[in-house]
Design a protein around this nucleic acid. Structure first.
Lengths: 333, 333
DNA sequence: TTGTAGGCGTTATCAA
DNA sequence: TTGATAACGCCTACAA
């Protein structure tokens, strides 16, 4: 049998309560403390967390539910989350939907069941308003990363996608480009709309003409970027391209290189994300860096505050500014 | 107050035991079942998992402890793990060392404390024999991914690194290369030695001469591959290079391209890992694909079996064969 | 500073 | 098929 607090007490010649107090750092006489310590060591005693959680009604665990584990960004988010949790003595249970087609809201049960003290939902797909309302209604500590479906009074964190694209278009304008094509993303992604709006807004603000032929919808994949660029190349009439993510930017670059074009001499190109290869590639890719790790740590911070304040919510949407990273895929005209 | 099983019983005009039975799918009379179901719905009752875990001494959770969350491979491993766990009703708690310089063995406490039913340790660094012996001694359900420090009787899973490099050297030989350079990895990584051995063994087996000048030690980084290649280019006398990972292969490619060389016309190059860019790059990279997802699912499978068989261990080391992926970075001579 | 006693929400045993 | 009752291992008044 694995030893319990009772066994320790017996061996140390004292009571369960005293051992418990010792374990929780409450005042205990030097002498008994020593005896308890020895008993614990001798028995190789470890407290049973499930018993503790039952009485405390607190797990010191938060859950993170992720919609698509394949997404390359989640490890950075997780890293940020872990940093905050580690510093506060929390652990992190990892859930994914997808396989069983579960909905995000199904995971609210974890809160009801006392399995976790709070939940971070991360998805960059578009959320349904109903789902977000349900999370809000649950009145448990919950924070969203990604889309908030326009629901205001729920804590959420996202990248300011529109501002990222605006930065990048402004940059291209500054170095002389006037005819700027755009490779958009998939409809299901929440960021697609915001990035497109950023593109259109900055084109307008700079007094450039918006040429619909220079906008092509893709799916953020490498292959998608490749075909999108083939399309653009047939149309022509541009000197620079904004790809709405790095992966499709690389696909676009392949298409151009295959047709014998040189980057950046013939065309300038920028991406969005700053994935690791963007700095390795030849030429390296000018892009917009997403602050994933910070999204994770901010989310964890908010969640922990809600947990500590006993569920009181701060009702804020935190839009983090992405950062323009200038490298060598653009030519100054 | 959140409702308990007792409240449900009262409302359904029955006893706690009956409700408990209903919850666990044991036979209950149709009539009472209906009453219980209604009571549960009306009260919005959810069972308290911590109470259940206390009496069952079982959490239905396994822990995965990862040494370096930055590592790009962990999400694939995690995906494999999750697939198996999902199918078996287990959840997955995620731990990292690193931040507080904790050792892997510190996490054995999670088992003692009843927080998880089993543990998967994943690290591609070299493990100390002492640590692995300690895991083995604990006699809890535990499986290692990566190094096993030569300890035989502990379940572990790894890639057959040596065989991967052998495949790739044989391939280069087959298409006509005889002077094959090698860019090695960092000393701390467990795979470095095995891959180097694969290189040396196949060079010997093919009757080629082993030229020490064509072996350069690097650190698996992009920049490391870049400088390694500069070094090799000064020496010269090779037609192909084996980089011991993809990232350094790309660094090497940059160095060659910067000096005006064409790949594969001037030099052939292969990598190891098959990270996503390897298929996007121009030219795309011939490499060795690591079966990360399968490593995860195999590990989870082994662990679950150990848990079900009440801790009995299968004492096996599972070496998965990596797969040669031929793309366009090599020229047939 | 210490010990006694009661309770946390389940499941499991045993009679009925 | 059901209902008392006793665990499970811990924490926390309360009294000493």
């Amino acid at each position: 049998m694995t030893p319990t607090i009772k066994d320790v007490a017996k061996l140390a010649n004292t009571s369960k309560s005293t051992v418990s107090r010792y374990l929780n750092g409450k005042p205990v006489k030097k002498q008994t403390e020593e005896a308890v310590r020895r008993a614990i060591a001798e028995l190789n005693y470890h407290p049973n967390m499930n018993a503790r959680r039952l009485v405390l009604d607190k797990t010191q665990e938060i859950g993170i539910v992720v919609d698509d584990i394949t997404n390359r960004f989640y490890s950075a988010i997780l890293k940020g989350v872990r940093r905050i949790l580690d510093a506060n003595g929390y652990d992190c249970v990892f859930y994914t939907l997808g396989l069983h087609h579960r909905k995000e809201t199904d995971f609210l049960d974890l809160l009801y069941e006392g399995q976790v003290d709070g939940l971070i939902f991360v998805s960059f797909m578009r959320r349904s308003e109903d789902d977000v309302e349900e999370m809000k209604a649950s009145s448990f500590p919950v924070v969203l990363i990604g889309d908030d479906a326009g629901v205001n009074e729920i804590p959420s964190i996202d990248v300011d996608n529109s501002s990222g694209v605006i930065d990048v278009v402004n940059y291209l304008y500054r170095i002389g480009h006037r005819d700027i094509a755009y490779i958009s993303g998939p409809d299901g992604a929440a960021a697609t709309k915001a990035r497109m709006e950023g593109y259109q807004a900055s084109i307008a603000r700079l007094g450039l003409k918006l040429n619909p032929d220079l906008i092509v919808v893709s799916d953020w994949s490498n292959k998608g970027g490749y075909t999108a660029m083939q399309q653009l190349l047939e149309v022509g009439g541009f000197t620079a391209v904004v790809a709405s993510n790095d992966e499709s930017a690389f696909g676009a670059m392949s298409a151009m290189q295959e047709q014998g074009y040189n980057i950046p001499k013939d065309f300038s190109i920028v991406g969005f994300d700053d994935i690791d290869i963007s700095s390795w590639s030849y030429p390296s890719l000018t892009t917009v860096r997403q602050p994933f790790e910070q999204m994770g740590s901010n989310a964890a911070q908010m969640l922990l505050e809600m947990i500590d304040s006993d569920g009181e919510r701060s009702y804020s949407r935190d839009l983090l500014k992405p950062q323009l990273i200038v490298r060598s895929s653009c030519l100054t005209l």
